[in-house]
C-alpha cells in the first residue's frame, strides 16, 4: 500500500522565524504516529500544512491530494480534532449531527447517535452549556462516525480531566482504529499516548530529529541504571543523558550495543517522555 503522507522538503517560514525547515518524511497506512515536540517546534504548522490550512514550500502529498489545491476534497478522507475549543459555541448537538450528516458523504448517522447515546449529551444542548470533556465527546462522536482514512489530533485532550483523557484514547482504539486508518497525534501528555503509538516523530526547531517506529526506538535507545561505582565507566560510553535516582545514576544511550551495557547495570527501554527530555535538552536555553 502506498504512503498516506509523503512530504519532501516541506518548508514554512514566517517573517522572523522558521517553522518548518525543509523536512521530509513518509507516513504509512495503519500507523499511529506521535508527533512530539516542544512548544513552537513546528508541530501545528506541519499539521496545518497537511490539512491544507496553510501555504508552504516543497512537496506534500496527502492521500493523493495536494492539500493546497484540493483541501475540500481532501477533507472527505481526513478528519481533524484540534484542541477542545473549536466547536462553535452556539451549535446544538442535533444541529451539529444534522449538518455533518448532510455535508459529509462518509458520515454514518447511526454510528454517531450510538456514540452519543453512551454520553450524557442531549440533542438540544448547546456547546456553550457543555464542559470541555463533553465538547470533546461530541467532537469525537462526530469524527468517529466518519469513515476517514486519516485522523489528525492536535492536542485533543488539552485541559481535560484524566477520566475523559483515558476514555478518549480508549474509544479511539476500540471503536475507531483499524489497519486501514492512520492517526497522527500531537500531545504534551506523552505518557498517555506512548502505549498506543506505533511510530514516533520528534520535531525540534522545525526539523525532525527522530523518526522511527517504536520497535526501532526500543532497540536504538537503552536506559541503564548504574551504581555509583560504575558511573564513570558508563560516562565513558558517551550517554546522551544522565540523571540521578535514589543514589543511582540512570544513563540513556543512543545506539550502544546491549552487550556492552548489560554489565553496568539493569537495562530497559526508556519511556518516551525520558527520551523526549533527553533529546530536547537545551531547547529553551
Amino acid at each position: 500500500m502506498s504512503a498516506v503522507i509523503t512530504a519532501s522538503r516541506l518548508g514554512k517560514r514566517y517573517k522572523s522565524s522558521v517553522a518548518l525547515d525543509d523536512v521530509s518524511f513518509q507516513i504509512e497506512p495503519g500507523r499511529i504516529v506521535g508527533l512530539i515536540g516542544p512548544n513552537g517546534a513546528g508541530k501545528t504548522t506541519a499539521l496545518k500544512a497537511i490539512l491544507g490550512l496553510t501555504d508552504f514550500t516543497g512537496e506534500l502529498n496527502v492521500l493523493g491530494y495536494d492539500p493546497r489545491k484540493q483541501r475540500d476534497k481532501l477533507m472527505g478522507d481526513v478528519c481533524f480534532i484540534a484542541d477542545v475549543a473549536v466547536l462553535p459555541r452556539w451549535i446544538k448537538v442535533s444541529q451539529a449531527v444534522d449538518f455533518v450528516a448532510n455535508v459529509h458523504p462518509r458520515f454514518n448517522r447511526k454510528k454517531c447517535e450510538a456514540f452519543l447515546a453512551r454520553t450524557k449529551l442531549q440533542p438540544n444542548q448547546r456547546v456553550r452549556q457543555m464542559s470541555k470533556g463533553m465538547i470533546v465527546q461530541l467532537h469525537l462522536a462526530l469524527v468517529m462516525a466518519i469513515d476517514a482514512r486519516l485522523l489528525i489530533l492536535d492536542e485533543p485532550t488539552l485541559g481535560l480531566d484524566i477520566l475523559y483523557r483515558k476514555q478518549f484514547y480508549q474509544n479511539l482504539l476500540e471503536d475507531y482504529f483499524d489497519e486501514n486508518k492512520t492517526i497522527i497525534v500531537t500531545t504534551h501528555q506523552v505518557e498517555e499516548v506512548e502505549h498506543i503509538l506505533t511510530d514516533l516523530m520528534f520535531i525540534r526547531d522545525g526539523r525532525i530529529v527522530l523518526d522511527a517506529d517504536m520497535d526501532a526506538v526500543g532497540e536504538r535507545f537503552i536506559e541503564v541504571m548504574v551504581n555509583a561505582d560504575q558511573a564513570d565507566a558508563a560516562r565513558a560510553l558517551k550517554p546522551i543523558d544522565e540523571r540521578q535516582v535514589f543514589g543511582k545514576s540512570i544513563f540513556l544511550f543512543d545506539g550502544a550495543s546491549r552487550a556492552t551495557l548489560e554489565p553496568l547495570g539493569e537495562t530497559r527501554r526508556p519511556s518516551v517522555s525520558d527520551l523526549f527530555v533527553a533529546t530536547m535538552k537545551g531547547t529553551y536555553a
Binding site: 490550512l53 483541501r71 475540500d72 477533507m75 481526513v78
Partner: peptide, 20 residues
C-alpha cells in the same frame, strides 16, 4: 467571528469548499 473563536478549524475540517 469563527476565526476569532477558532471554530473555523471545525468548519474547515469538513469537505466544504471555501467558495461555497
Amino acid at each position: 467571528d469563527d476565526r476569532r473563536d477558532r471554530s473555523i478549524l471545525f468548519w474547515k475540517s469538513l469537505p466544504v469548499s471555501d467558495t461555497s
